[in-house]
Design a protein around this nucleic acid. Structure first.
Lengths: 194, 194
DNA sequence: GCGATACAGGACTGTACTGTACGATTTCTA
DNA sequence: TAGAAATCGTACAGTACAGTCCTGTATCGC
């Protein structure tokens, strides 16, 4: 099984790209097999050869578009590594593609178990990176093991996602810096609310 | 026009409640006129007497469910008032109803101008409250007029919305306190990233 | 080149939903 | 109680979409 038929890879890519464009431009409800046929030139029967149902295609579209975040270089300390990570998140959220797809995924995951699993896998990858990052912070003595990592990540990433969703404030690296800066400030001044 | 026919108010309320329940439980795609008929007992023709199209009904459902936030008492200072406001936000986000509806609204507003306007009105109301709150902070000398209010609100509310959407970390008043605490800490320690 | 396989291009069935129409019935108001 | 108005119940046309099936054609690996 050295090589796979190039025709298969070709149509698969064409269909996925077209489907993603439709979802981004018109939403998930507009993703119909006929729409993909009309826009991609790929035949109806061919699409059903690759995906048993329309829903399977939609799942693959999301999976195809989920951003792949990368663990920052191990030489970096907590602050620099976290900043780099947050900047990468900003990049993906600012991109029109994921900017439109994320809310759709959030909205659908509550009702479509298959999409919920796509989102789970995404959070797993992100979770392992975040664990790595917080391990650096603990090693540097910035906080102890009692720090709630999930909550901390929520505090750091939340503003970025919110900015992307609401469109109230522009999503920029400076926003990520501000979020990180507030978090670090909160570390040195122990939470008076508890 | 002293009193309106109670039948009208009754049907309207029944249909809106039923429709909201369907959207919460099964998503906006499941909101069909037939589904409302089956579940509410209201006749098809009656629904079309009140709403010209299914989409108009959906818009009304969102409008009917948008939480109405309230300006905290004027006696409260910036910190206490903001805390109260954030706790109210947490309350609404923790409620199953709005917890499901918000992502749907976020996902659809990009493609449905009518829903975009629902969201705009919501943000306007929220924006006027936020202006009031920041005015208190400025009066107390916590920051000057150069503070970007939109960004600040994003930093404060973002984590709450993100927690509600992702489900990674529980959405509690303590989370709101942590967000506020980080923000205040960031104020006293001027942002080193700029 | 040749067999195998993927693709193109339809036609077709079944279903779900929208929106309209209209007579019969209930419920309000005066 | 009587008239007005809202509601019920149902039938109907039109449309959009999912998914199947079949035939002929292009493209691949060998």
């Amino acid at each position: 099984m050295g090589t796979t038929d190039p025709r298969i890879a070709r149509t698969r890519a064409t269909v996925l790209d077209t489907a993603a464009a439709i979802v981004v431009e018109q939403g998930t409800a507009a993703l119909t097999v006929d729409a993909v046929v009309a826009r991609s030139g790929v035949a109806r029967s061919t699409i059903y050869r690759h995906w048993p149902t329309r829903d399977d295609l939609l799942v693959d579209v999301f999976e195809h578009c989920v951003p792949s975040l990368v663990t920052p270089s191990p030489e970096l300390g907590f602050e620099a590594a976290m900043r780099q990570f947050l900047h990468a998140v900003v990049d993906h959220l600012a991109d029109a593609k994921w900017n439109r797809m994320l809310p759709a995924l959030m909205a659908l995951k509550a009702y479509e178990p298959t999409l919920a699993r796509v989102e789970e896998r995404m959070e797993e990858r992100q979770g392992s990176i975040s664990a790595d990052l917080f391990a650096r912070g603990e090693r540097e003595g910035m906080f102890g093991p009692e720090l709630d990592r999930s909550r901390a990540m929520t505090l750091l990433v939340g503003p970025l996602v919110f900015a992307a969703l609401s469109g109230e404030t522009p999503i920029t690296p400076e926003l990520a810096d501000a979020s990180l800066s507030n978090f670090l400030a909160g570390l040195s001044r122990p939470d008076p609310a508890r």
